[in-house]
Design a protein around this nucleic acid. Structure first.
Lengths: 219, 219
DNA sequence: CCCGGATGTTATCGGTCGATAACATAGCGA
DNA sequence: TCGCTATGTTATCGACCGATAACATCCGGG
């Protein structure tokens, strides 16, 4: 007494044929699921595994992407490029508010984007693969986030404007990396973290400000 | 005019047989090279690639390790367990010296161990594989390093001794993670870092102390 | 000197990989 | 409704994977 065939015409027909989708939608679907898949299994995982998760056959992937590496490149683009928000820089530069508020606000919304398992794992996997996309991403962080943060700290504490020194940027990296690593411990290493994100950010911002204050403050 | 055979008897004999080594030494050699190999290529790389790098045939590995996964476990042991120095805790606890000196000294010697490409990459690879060895390592860091650091900061700034709160440990993690991430950027992402390690550590320790001072200091 | 176990190698198995070719059919325009 | 093309599938290729079996040789103890 076999269960009724969902779509097939015959008795357990040749295969329940998949509904056909326009090319653009299929691509989107493939990339979205590929992010999940590669984030979980790593980029060395098989295209067959991905196809299975998509409910399609493996050769179909090759109609949409010339090679596995091309698919991975598109994954990078969606994760790194598309999720960057230009308005983050505005939050940091908004001198209507105290710098502490701005930094807390920035890290709050920034971590809303990067503190998810897919983003974190894709980032770590691609870095280990040697993809220079990570270096480009870090250059973006330095230029759009950290150097502005140093400049704003100078202004906040009454120091004359001057380009951020390497040492100052490096310290901003340390705080930034500390927050980032909190996300890694939570989402990749799955440590059970008892302190909430907002508090961690506030303490990190505290640390950044108190060091920059002692460096930049005229008194 | 063929070059003289190094060891083989015949004219380009069947294969220049590899010198035989006692079992223990061979094992050591295999594990040491496996650390290099897997650190560079990832744990998904083939045992044939490793054997090639070792100059032996691939099945020989299986005389020394029952499976690839067993070999990887030994790699973990050597990297994580054997390189941990119990005396690190002594540096932190030595109240003869100012806490700032102790922390700078500790992070100086700690990073001498973990700031190398093999350690960093093995750590990141194993974490992404879901190996709970990372969670155990982080527990070690928390108990042997971070909780003592918080306790010493309490003592240094005249606060009554009390178990470190989660929030305090989490802040110590942020600073610790910031230093760690400096190593990742240097050795894994191969960013060209212009500020030297000692300065980065000093600034990070500054940040830790100034925040704990404002929390613990009685005045 | 010789023999037997330890230390290696060659050969190979079944499975999986990325990628391609050949074939099938859904579904839209004429 | 017919037919053509885009969207799928099945079948398969050559390479590589972890692992095992069978064979070869070094070398020390008697």
């Amino acid at each position: 007494m076999p269960p009724p065939d969902d779509t097939g015409p015959g008795p357990t027909g040749p295969a329940p044929r998949r509904r056909r989708l326009p090319s653009a939608e299929r691509r989107q679907e493939f990339i979205a699921k590929a992010i999940d898949f590669f984030a979980e299994e790593g980029f060395e995982s098989s295209t067959r595994g991905l196809a299975k998760r998509l409910g399609v056959t493996q050769p179909l992937l090759y109609r949409y992407f010339p090679s596995k590496e091309d698919l991975i490149s598109e994954v990078y683009d969606v994760v790194y490029v598309n999720r960057w928000r230009p308005e983050w820089a505005d939050i940091i530069a908004d001198r209507e508010r105290p710098l502490r508020d701005r930094l807390n606000h920035f890290y709050q919304v920034y971590t809303e984007v990067i503190f998810n398992r897919q983003w974190m794992r894709i980032y770590l996997f691609s870095g280990l693969k040697g993809a220079d996309i990570n270096r480009r991403y870090m250059l973006l962080v330095r230029q759009r986030i950290l150097e502005p943060v140093v400049a704003e700290a100078r202004a906040e504490f009454g120091a004359p404007p001057r380009p951020a020194t390497d040492q100052e940027v490096e310290f901003a990296w340390t705080i930034h990396g500390g927050i980032f690593y909190y996300g890694v411990r939570d989402l990749v290493y799955e440590s059970t973290l008892s302190t909430d994100k907002a508090t961690v950010i506030e303490d990190a911002v505290d640390a950044l400000l108190s060091v920059f204050q002692s460096r930049f403050s005229p008194n």
